[in-house]
Amino acid sequence: MPDWRPGVGAVVAFTGHAYVCSDRQPARERLETLGCNGFGGATLPAVAMELAGPHGWIDCLDVLLIAHGRGLQAPALRARPDLADHPRAVHARLTRGEVTTFGYADPHRRDVATVGQGPGDLPMIGVEVDEPGRGSRIFADVLDLLPPDLVLASVAPGNARSLRAALRAGFGIIASVQLFVPAAESDG
Rank of each mutant, 00 (worst) to 15 (best):
Gly9Leu: 04
Gly9Ile: 09
Ala10Glu: 09
Val11Asp: 02
Val11Lys: 08
Val11Trp: 11
Val11Thr: 06
Val11Arg: 10
Val11His: 08
Val12Trp: 01
Val12Leu: 06
Ala13Pro: 00
Ala13Ile: 00
Ala13Met: 02
Phe14Tyr: 15
Phe14Arg: 12
Phe14Ser: 07
Thr15Ile: 05
Gly16Val: 10
Gly16Ser: 14
Gly16Asn: 14
Gly16Ile: 08
Gly16Thr: 07
His17Pro: 00
His17Trp: 15
His17Ser: 14
Ala18Gln: 05
Ala18Trp: 04
Ala18Arg: 09
Ala18Leu: 03
Ala18Cys: 03
Tyr19Gln: 05
Tyr19Met: 05
Tyr19Cys: 00
Val20Cys: 06
Val20Arg: 11
Val20Asp: 03
Cys21His: 15
Cys21Tyr: 10
Ser22Gly: 01
Ser22Arg: 06
Ser22Phe: 03
Asp23Arg: 10
Asp23Lys: 03
Arg24Gln: 13
Arg24Leu: 12
Arg24Glu: 12
Gln25Phe: 02
Pro26Trp: 13
Pro26Phe: 08
Pro26Leu: 11
Arg28Phe: 03
Glu29Cys: 00
Glu29Arg: 15
Glu29His: 13
Glu29Ala: 15
Arg30Asp: 03
Leu31Cys: 04
Leu31Gln: 10
Leu31Gly: 05
Glu32Ser: 09
Glu32Met: 06
Glu32Tyr: 04
Glu32Pro: 00
Glu32Trp: 08
Glu32Ile: 09
Thr33Asp: 10
Thr33Asn: 01
Thr33Lys: 13
Leu34Ala: 04
Leu34Asp: 06
Leu34Val: 05
Leu34Gln: 10
Leu34Lys: 13
Gly35Thr: 03
Gly35Phe: 05
Gly35Tyr: 05
Cys36Arg: 02
Cys36Tyr: 13
Cys36Pro: 01
Cys36Ala: 15
Cys36Val: 04
Asn37Phe: 02
Asn37Glu: 06
Gly38Ser: 07
Gly38Met: 08
Gly38Tyr: 07
Gly38Lys: 08
Gly38Glu: 08
Gly40His: 12
Gly41Leu: 05
Gly41Asp: 03
Gly41Ser: 01
Ala42Thr: 05
Thr43Gln: 15
Thr43Met: 01
Thr43Val: 14
Leu44Cys: 01
Leu44Gly: 10
Leu44Arg: 15
Pro45Asn: 09
Pro45Phe: 13
Pro45Ile: 12
Pro45Arg: 09
Ala46Lys: 13
Val47Tyr: 11
Val47Glu: 10
Ala48Arg: 12
Ala48Gln: 09
Met49Val: 06
